[in-house]
Design a protein around this nucleic acid. Sequence first.
DNA 1: GCACTATTTCGACAAATCTAGAATTAGTTC
DNA 2: GAACTAATTCTAGATTTGTCGAAATAGTGC
Lengths: 111, 111
Amino acid sequence: MTGRVEQAAERLKALGHPLRLSILRRLVQGPEAGTPAGELQTRLDIPASTLSHHLATLADADLVLVAREGTTLRYRADYGTLRALTEYLWQDCCAGGAADDPQPSPCCRRD
Amino acid sequence: MTGRVEQAAERLKALGHPLRLSILRRLVQGPEAGTPAGELQTRLDIPASTLSHHLATLADADLVLVAREGTTLRYRADYGTLRALTEYLWQDCCAGGAADDPQPSPCCRRD
DNA sequence: GCACTATTTCGACAAATCTAGAATTAGTTC
DNA sequence: GAACTAATTCTAGATTTGTCGAAATAGTGC
C-alpha cells in the first residue's frame, strides 16, 4: 500500500548516492545483457560487500534487474522504471503532478 | 570541487524523501512568487521545525529559492536546477552520460 | 523598547545508512 | 564430494538523518 509519492521518493533516494549513480551509469553504458557484478567491482574499485549492498538497494527500488549466468550475476538497468521515474519527476516539476493545474509551470519554458 | 555525479546524487537524495517531494509538489503548484512556509506547514500538518529542516535540505541542494516578505519567507521551486537535474538523469538513463556511446539505450525507445 | 507573529536554530534522541572484513551460499569442474 | 570462483549475507562500528519541543532570531507595529 505504498503511494506514488512514497515510491518515487524511495527510488530517488536510491539514486541519491554517488556510488549508486555511478553503478547505474556503468550499467547503462554496458551491454544490454547486463554487466557482471565482478566487473563493476573491478571498475569501481570498491569492496565486493559494499558493491553488493548498493546493488541490493538499487534492486529493491526496482531500478536494476539481475540474471544469473553460471556463477556470475549480471545486472542491468530497468529502463521501464527509470523512464517512469523521470517522467514522474518531470511532471512533478512542470505540471504540479495533479490535474488541477493544467498549464505548464515556468520550468517547461525553454529559451 | 564537487563533481557532476556527486552534485546530482546530492540533489536526488534531497528529493528522496516523501515529505520533501510533497513540499516540492506544493511549491510547483503554488504561486510563482513563492509559498509562505507557514502555509506549507498548515497544509502538510507537520511541526514548523520539521518543515524548516526539510526546506533547508532542499535549499542546500539548490532545489528551492527563498525570499523574505515582511515576517514571512516565501519558498519557490528553482526550475533551472530541476530541469538540469531531470536532463542529467535522462541522459544518464538514455545515453550513458559520457560521449563514448552515442546511440541511445533501449530506455529511449517509446512504443 | 515591548508585544506580537513567522520562522529558524538548538539540542537530544531514535532510527537508518554506509562501510568493509569475515563467514556463507551458489554454481562449476574434476 | 573437494576445490575453486563469484557473489551475497552477516556483523559491527561510525556517521548521517529524521523528528520535534524549546529557545532564539527577524521583522512589524505600537
